[in-house]
Amino acid sequence: MPTMKWLWTLPVAGVLIGTIVLLAVRLIGGFSDGEDPLEVRDAETGGDPRVLVVTYVALGPPCDTPTRVTVEENESTVTLRAWAKKGPGGVCLLAGQLLTAEVSLDKPLGDREVVDGRDGQPVAVEGTPDRG
């Protein structure tokens, strides 16, 4: 008859492995210090082809507290990410509010595609026809 004295090790091992995985994800950067990505709705160029006015969607306090909009560039793509700290919840409107932020590019937008860093989807860009 098999002994039952080692049966308790399975749940303990599961908890230990789960804790190690969560710590590894946290250290590698899988979480963003309490910030969550928001939807980037569109962008607009103006007189300066190195500046984009980004429109993004947030629920607003007490649910979202928008914190920043970041930009990453390469030769073919400009990636925009809007961030918010999640609040304690409470009564929130289901409809988000549109907010804007200005971001500076290292070089004019030109023909580069603009994408939402949250999901990789293209972002519509309004503005000057040559975009810089």
Rank of each mutant, 00 (worst) to 15 (best):
M1N: 07
P2N: 02
M4P: 09
M4W: 10
M4C: 01
K5R: 07
K5L: 08
K5T: 10
W8P: 09
T9C: 13
L10H: 08
P11R: 05
P11L: 11
P11I: 09
V12H: 00
G14L: 14
V15K: 04
V15Q: 08
I20Q: 10
V21A: 14
V21K: 06
L22P: 06
A24S: 11
V25M: 09
V25Y: 07
V25W: 03
L27E: 09
G29Q: 07
G29L: 10
G30F: 01
D33W: 11
D33N: 13
G34T: 04
G34C: 06
G34F: 03
E35R: 12
L38R: 06
E39A: 11
V40E: 04
D42K: 07
G46V: 05
G47I: 04
D48Q: 08
P49Y: 02
P49S: 12
V51E: 15
T55F: 01
A58R: 00
A58W: 09
L59T: 12
G60H: 13
G60C: 14
P61F: 02
P62S: 05
P62H: 03
C63F: 13
D64T: 03
D64L: 07
T65W: 04
T65Y: 07
T67L: 02
T70H: 05
V71L: 13
E72R: 15
E72S: 11
E72L: 14
E73P: 03
V78F: 06
T79E: 12
L80N: 00
A82L: 04
W83M: 07
A84G: 02
K86Y: 09
K86T: 14
P88H: 10
P88G: 13
G89Y: 01
G89F: 06
G89S: 13
C92F: 11
A95V: 12
A95T: 11
G96R: 02
Q97I: 11
L98W: 05
L99W: 15
L99Y: 10
T100C: 01
E102D: 15
E102K: 08
E102Q: 14
V103S: 11
L105C: 08
K107L: 06
K107Y: 05
K107E: 09
K107D: 09
D111I: 11
D111C: 08
R112Y: 10
E113S: 14
V114W: 01
V115L: 14
D116C: 05
G117R: 01
R118P: 01
G120P: 07
P122M: 04
P122K: 06
P122Y: 03
A124G: 04
A124R: 08
G127V: 12
T128Q: 14
T128L: 10
P129S: 09
P129W: 05
D130L: 14
D130S: 15
R131L: 11
R131A: 11
R131H: 13
G132W: 02
G132H: 02
G132S: 05
